[in-house]
């Protein structure tokens, strides 16, 4: 049986590669399943299939790591779509973006994000950030104690 599934929505190939590498090197990294999607439309399509009423129910992720500035459908729109969807309301959503602007932070939380992380330049910081955030949210997700929406 495989471990928790993380859905990464990231359009920047370098960032995606670095994030994947950082996650794979986490202590719990080996047991995690990481799915990488390139834009908002793909994310919505994937989640529609994976949801309780979808045809791929067993691929429902345990956490979504999403960028905000995405082609076609933005991160905000994806988050809002997820929160309006039965069975996905409790999905932990962690925003990982390069923007530190207040308007983006407020917008992400308003849309229904659970955490907001600014992409650090330091690989060590990224690794530490992902380790603590993922373990926290996966732990709570496992207990079903997600922020009510």
């Amino acid at each position: 049986m495989s471990g928790p599934c993380i859905l990464l929505v990231e359009d920047e190939p370098d960032d995606a590669a670095l994030i994947q590498r950082a996650i794979s090197k986490l202590p719990q990294g080996q047991s995690l399943v990481l799915r990488h999607l390139w834009n908002g439309d793909e994310a919505v399509a994937y989640l529609a299939e994976a949801g309780p009423s979808g045809s791929a129910r067993d691929s429902l992720p345990d956490l979504m790591l999403i960028d905000l500035k995405l082609p076609r459908r933005s991160g905000f729109e994806v988050i809002e779509w997820v929160r309006g969807r039965d069975g996905l309301r409790r999905l932990p959503i962690v925003v990982l973006t390069s923007s530190a602007q207040q308007v983006d932070i407020d917008g992400a939380y308003d849309a229904g994000a659970n955490a907001y992380l600014v992409k650090p330049s330091s690989p060590r910081e990224l690794a530490a950030m992902l380790e603590t955030t993922l373990s926290f949210w996966l732990h709570f997700a496992a207990r079903g104690a997600i922020r009510p929406s």
């Binding site: 370098d14 960032d15 670095l18 390069s98 602007q101 992409k119 650090p120 330049s121 690989p123």
Partner: peptide, 21 residues
């Protein structure tokens, strides 16, 4: 200026990240 600075960070993260890797 903000968007320039912002956009400059993305490749920089790559440089730092991959050098470190």
């Amino acid at each position: 200026a903000y968007s320039i600075a912002h956009d400059l960070r993305a490749p920089l993260r790559g440089i730092i990240g991959f050098a470190d890797a």
